[in-house]
Simulated scan of single mutants.
Amino acid sequence: MDANHINDNTVRTPDMIAAEIVAIKEQTGKILLISAVEIGKRLLEAKEKIPYGEFVRWLEGSVAYSESTAYNLMHIAEAYGPELSVSSDVSGKTEAFTKLGYTQAFVLLGLPAEERAEFITQFDLENMAVRELQQAVNDRKLALTEKEALQKENDTQKSAISQLSKELDQAKKEATDNLQAVWAEQGNVLKLQRKLDVVENENAATKHIAEIELESKILKLNLSMTQADARFDLIAKGFDDLFIAIKEMAAADPKAFKFYLIQTNQFISKTLEKLRRMEKSAPAVPEAPATPEDSAL
Rank of each mutant, 00 (worst) to 15 (best):
K152S: 07
D233H: 10
L214V: 01
N203L: 06
A205M: 00
E185F: 02
I212E: 12
F123Y: 13
G238R: 04
L214W: 03
L192V: 00
Q134P: 01
V189L: 10
A204F: 04
K195L: 04
L125C: 15
K152I: 04
G187W: 03
E174I: 02
A205G: 05
E200I: 05
R131K: 09
R131P: 01
A160C: 08
K166W: 13
T156F: 12
I218V: 09
I209V: 13
E167V: 04
A129Q: 07
W183I: 02
T226A: 13
N154S: 10
R194D: 06
Q163Y: 08
E167I: 03
E126H: 12
F239Q: 13
T226R: 14
L221A: 14
I235D: 05
R131Q: 08
K195Y: 01
I120H: 00
K158C: 13
V189T: 06
A228N: 05
K207E: 03
L164M: 06
A149K: 13
S159H: 14
S159R: 06
L125M: 11
A236Q: 08
S224A: 07
K172M: 12
E153S: 08
V189P: 01
K220W: 02
I120K: 05
S216T: 02
A181R: 11
T176N: 11
S216K: 11
G187L: 01
E185H: 09
A160R: 13
A205L: 00
L144F: 08
V198L: 07
Q157K: 08
D197G: 09
L142C: 12
E132N: 05
L142W: 08
E153G: 07
M225P: 01
L196I: 00
L196M: 03
K147Q: 14
A175P: 00
E200Y: 13
Q163T: 09
K207D: 00
K147P: 07
T156I: 11
N127K: 14
A228Y: 02
K158M: 14
A175H: 04
A160T: 12
F232L: 11
K217R: 14
L144A: 15
G238Q: 03
L142N: 09
L214C: 00
V130I: 06
Q151C: 01
T176G: 13
Q193I: 01
N203Q: 08
E146D: 14
S165Q: 15
S224H: 05
R231Y: 13
I235N: 10
A236V: 09
E211G: 09
A175T: 00
T156Y: 09
S224N: 05
A204G: 04
